[in-house]
Computed example of a mutant assay.
Amino acid sequence: MITADELEQVSAILGTIYDTILAKSSWQDVLEQTCALLAAEAGSIIFLDPVGQRAAYAFEHGTDPKYSELFLTYGSANPFMLSVLLAPVGEVAKPLELVGRQAISKERFYKEWCEPQNYGDFIGGLVARRDRQFATFSFVRLTHEPLFDEREDRLLRLIVPHVVRSLTIAEAFDEVVTEKHAYLDTLDLLRSPAMLVRSDMSVAYVNPAGQNLVREQDGAIARLADGRLVLNDKQIFSAVRSAVASDSGARMFMLGDPPHTSISIVPIKSSQLSALPVADATSAIFFSSATANLPPPAQPLVDAFGLTPAELRILILLLEGRTPNAIADDIGVGIATVRTHIASLLAKTGSVRQQDMIAKVAALMPPIGALPN
């Protein structure tokens, strides 16, 4: 069971997560707070490109900069590349269990990166998937500490969906705002409805998607009345109105059963008002529709051929054009092991030649573009 103290910590973390929409530096606080909750040594948000074999730290807490740099150099030899190809967005997973603890302990990545830092266990979630990259929200414990268990899994499952929503809402806020109208220009680019409101719920600005939302007639969830935002769900509206009036920090509310729309309230800090032409707005409100996550990009291969994680990893490296010898060197196993996996792949895919197998499975892989240089 999750304790009352743990729920209070989770609530504080969620508030900080929604602060990140307009203050990205707050991700450092999110990582620090989550490390404390999970009793983790370090935490990070990392962007991974499995096709281009590139990685980049976005935010990190408790990490060693030297090893953060080293992490970015492993490419195909990094088992975390496999984990993002299999993970659904919003799910919590343990990468070492996916690849196999015994198997990974023999790999170059483990010996050169995990062992010197005494890293013993990882837990995290895939929190964003775009055409060009993946983002993970992950945490680590040391070898002398207990492995992450059901408690940490349950707690992280409460947090990860909010990280997903926050990153989705903030997607168009990736550039540093330097001009007066940049906030409004950025809001206009959002496909999700967004509004800037004053403490009395009077609307200072509505983006085009928001204008469409309040114009809807049948089944509308929001409307404008005398220039003020009104939600048709009276209970949720009362809570939203109180949150805006009290300036009580970032909050999120769900509409529908099961949830179909999330309403996120992000206070506008005084330091941000100078960047807004609407100087008296106190909160930004974002409406985000809950949509089904796309299947993991490698999942069609697993479903079609019944591949194991180890076989999938070999197959992906073959798709990249790696030779069996290069694969053996990259992941730290013998060439005989690699050839055994290839033989199993040929059998499972009903292929005689390696080239035929690659052509067959490539047709099932959704396209994933590489990160731009």
Results as ranks from 00 to 15, higher is better:
Ile104Val: 15
Gly90Ser: 04
Asn373Gly: 13
Val10Arg: 05
Ala204Arg: 06
Ala12Pro: 07
Pro295Tyr: 02
Ala12Tyr: 09
Asp121Gly: 09
Val30Tyr: 03
His341Glu: 07
Glu311Phe: 05
Asp218Cys: 12
Thr3Asn: 04
Ser262Asp: 07
Leu37Glu: 01
Glu32Tyr: 03
Phe139His: 05
Gly249Glu: 10
Asp218Ser: 11
Phe71Trp: 12
Arg54Ile: 06
Arg191Tyr: 15
Pro79Ala: 10
Arg141Phe: 04
Leu158Ser: 14
Val333His: 08
Ser83Ala: 05
Asp149Thr: 10
Leu85Ala: 12
Glu112Ser: 10
Pro95Cys: 08
Asn373Arg: 15
Thr308Arg: 13
Leu156Thr: 00
Gly90Thr: 01
Pro259Phe: 04
Leu187Arg: 04
Arg322Glu: 13
Arg154His: 12
Ile159Tyr: 01
Leu189Ile: 14
Phe122Cys: 14
Thr136Glu: 08
Arg241Val: 03
Gly332Thr: 11
Glu107Gly: 14
Gly43Arg: 01
Ala275Leu: 13
Thr168Asp: 05
Gly52Val: 00
Lys360Glu: 02
Met1Glu: 13
Ser270Pro: 02
Arg198Met: 08
Asp233Trp: 02
Ser138Val: 09
Pro296Met: 02
Thr323Lys: 09
Ala93Asp: 08
Asp185Gln: 14
Phe237Glu: 11
Val84Lys: 04
Asp64Lys: 08
Gly306His: 04
Tyr67Lys: 12
Lys180Gln: 10
Ile327Trp: 02
Ser11Met: 06
Ala243Phe: 00
Tyr110Leu: 05
Gly249Thr: 06
Tyr57Gly: 01
Leu126Ala: 11
Cys35Ala: 14
Val203Asn: 06
Leu187Gly: 01
Leu364Tyr: 01
Leu22Trp: 07
Asp200Tyr: 05
Arg165Ser: 15
Ser25Lys: 14
Ser288Asn: 14
Gly100Ile: 01
Arg215His: 13
Val89Gly: 00
Ser262Thr: 09
Gln133Ile: 02
Arg223Gln: 13
Ser25Trp: 15
Met1Ser: 12
Cys114Val: 03
Tyr57Cys: 11
Trp27Asn: 03
Pro88Cys: 13
Ala77Tyr: 00
Met81Leu: 15
Ile331Gln: 00
Glu107Asn: 11
Tyr119Phe: 12
Ile327Met: 07
Glu41Gln: 14
His162Gly: 04
Pro79Gly: 10
Asp356Met: 10
Ala56Phe: 03
Met365Phe: 04
Ala281Val: 01
Met365Asn: 07
Gln9Lys: 14
Ala194Asn: 05
Arg215Gly: 10
Val176Ile: 09
Val197Asp: 01
Ala194Ile: 03
Phe305Glu: 00
Pro116Thr: 10
Tyr18Lys: 04
Thr291His: 09
Ala93Gly: 02
Gly100Asp: 02
Ile268Val: 15
Asp226Phe: 09
Ala23Asn: 15
Asp121Trp: 00
Asp64Ala: 13
Leu371Glu: 07
Pro259Lys: 05
